[in-house]
Design a protein around this nucleic acid. Structure first.
Lengths: 133, 133
DNA sequence: CTTACTGCAAATTGTTTGCAGTAGC
DNA sequence: GCTACTGCAAACAATTTGCAGTAAG
């Protein structure tokens, strides 16, 4: 089944790769509507799934959120318990972790990604300001 | 708002703590029906959420799965790409990881958990058997 | 007695699917 | 021209919510 190159798929890919951060299907849809109204939600989901299969983007499902990330390389995330936002953690991929887990589980590990929970930079700053009131 | 101690909540807690592995809300429901038919799905969800809030159990949402775990201590998981099952990884919690992430993001990290993807022990064994056919 | 909790059904959310029409190749 | 892809609506799964009745304190 030879895959076809369509306008809508190209546009969707451009949006996620261009914006430089992960977004939900809903957010992709919203951006899409600005320039190309009339494209259906189903098309968005279908193309996001295809792009994942092709390894061009990555689907991130953690802590009940679902994001699509233009950067297909596995990387870690921080979930801010205060503001609820999700941030990329820019730390190098540590394959020693894979080896340790492989040993502990007797399994072959392909990749990992870590979900951190805490308070993000912004919320920490806000908290500090509060101290002076 | 003083919380009340109810029979259904106690039963649900017993099930998850007793079974020694994480289970979906659906699975809790199934076990529940064997001994206590008539308890509604909504009650299961409500009590699971309350138990999470109280820190007695833990909700795990990764890779599109949602589990409830009787062990509230954060720990890592392996998602088998072959059989689709989820396994606990029994490795000690490494807080150095938290410190590294805190530094990289300028954030305060409370905890983390890592999702590994790979091939589980069972599937590796099956694969080996295939070699001889 | 008071009101938090229950069981049911209906609502909501996020995502997928069926189908007739459209458009890549 | 063939058939994969689209847009829409309907279907779906997982979870939450509204409500009248029940039971914990």
């Amino acid at each position: 089944m030879q895959r076809r190159h369509t306008r809508q798929k190209q546009i969707i890919q451009n949006i996620i790769e261009g914006i430089g951060k992960h977004m939900t299907a809903e957010e992709v849809m919203a951006v899409l509507q600005e320039t190309e109204p009339g494209i259906g939600m189903a098309t968005v989901y279908r193309n996001l799934n295809v792009l994942c299969e092709e390894g061009i983007i990555q689907k991130i499902s953690e802590k009940g959120f679902s994001f699509y990330d233009g950067n297909p390389v596995p990387h870690d995330h921080l979930y801010c318990l205060r503001c609820g936002n999700v941030f990329d953690i820019d730390a190098p991929y540590d394959s020693r972790y894979d080896r340790k887990a492989a040993e502990a589980a007797g399994a072959r590990i392909i990749r990992h990604s870590t979900a951190f929970e805490g308070i993000c930079k912004n919320c920490l700053l806000k908290e500090e300001e509060q101290q002076w009131n």
